[in-house]
Simulated scan of single mutants.
Amino acid sequence: MSTPSTMTPSPAERTSEPEPPFTTRRADLGDLARVNALHHRCSLDTRYARYASGRRELKMSEFARLVHPAAGTSWITTLRDDRETAVAVTHLLKTRTPGVFELAVLVGDPWQGRGLGSWLTDYALHSAMVDPRCDAVVAMFGATNRRALRILRRRDVTVPTASAGVIDVTLPLPERS
C-alpha cells in the first residue's frame, strides 16, 4: 500500500502504485459531524476496541478538547474523492505527565486491514519525534484488539501483560536527528 496522505512521501517511501484513496489533515471543530458519522458506521467491536465501550459519538465539548492545539494534535483521514467521508481519526494528545503524549486511532471497518492504522501510527510517531514537548508516546487498548497488537508486533514492540483487560504500552519514537 502506498502512503495515504496528501504529504509527499520521502524518496525511500515512493512506489509506482497509483495515488492512495485517502488524505490526512489536522482535524478542527468543523469535523465533528464527519467524526460522529464515522463512529456511527463503525461496528460495536471497532468502537469497543478504541474506547473499551460502545461509544457512538462525541459531544462538541469533548471534540473541542481533542482538537484544541494546546491538547496536542488530532487528524482526520477522509476519502480523497469524498472529503466529507471520514475513514479514520487519530489523536496524539498530552497526558498529565509532562513530555508524555497518548496515541489513539480509530479506523472505520471497511478500511481496516489495508495498512491505514499502521501508517497513521507511524505518522503520529514521526510527528511526536519532531515535537520538542514530546519525550514518549503511550497507547492504551483492549487486550483483544488484534489489529493494535499486530501494529505493535510489526514494530518489534514488546507487548506488556494486560491489566484488567487493558494493555498500556510505551511506543518507541523514531530517532531524533
Rank of each mutant, 00 (worst) to 15 (best):
R34Q: 07
L92D: 03
R147G: 11
P21Q: 03
P132T: 05
F141M: 03
V107S: 10
L92C: 01
A104T: 13
L32E: 01
T90I: 07
A136K: 09
R150G: 11
G142V: 14
S127G: 08
T73Q: 06
V67Q: 07
L38G: 03
L79E: 00
G115V: 00
C42K: 05
A52Q: 03
T15E: 04
A164W: 01
Y51G: 08
V130A: 07
L116I: 01
F63K: 03
G108R: 07
M129I: 05
P98G: 05
G165L: 00
I167M: 08
P110Y: 02
A128G: 09
S74F: 00
R65L: 15
A124Y: 01
R114Q: 02
V107E: 06
A162C: 13
T158F: 14
T158M: 04
D109I: 01
Y48E: 13
A70V: 05
A12L: 14
H40W: 06
P9Y: 07
P110K: 05
G115M: 02
Y51V: 02
L149Y: 01
V166G: 13
R154S: 11
G99E: 14
A52Y: 06
L29M: 10
V159K: 09
S2R: 11
R153I: 06
R133P: 02
A88P: 06
A143L: 15
V87N: 03
D109N: 11
Y123M: 10
P172S: 11
A70D: 15
A37M: 00
L29N: 15
V138N: 08
L92W: 04
G108I: 00
R14S: 08
N145L: 08
S10L: 12
A71R: 02
G54Q: 00
T15A: 10
V35Y: 09
P4S: 11
V89Q: 01
M129V: 08
A64Y: 12
A71Q: 05
A37N: 02
I76Q: 03
N145G: 14
W75S: 09
A70T: 12
E175L: 12
N145C: 09
G117V: 03
G72K: 15
A52S: 15
D109H: 08
K94G: 13
A139F: 00
P9S: 05
A27R: 02
T23S: 06
L173G: 12
G30D: 10
V87R: 08
R150D: 03
A27H: 04
A164G: 11
R25S: 11
G115H: 05
L103R: 01
D156A: 12
D122P: 00
D122A: 09
T158S: 15
N145P: 14
R47G: 00
R96G: 15
D135A: 14
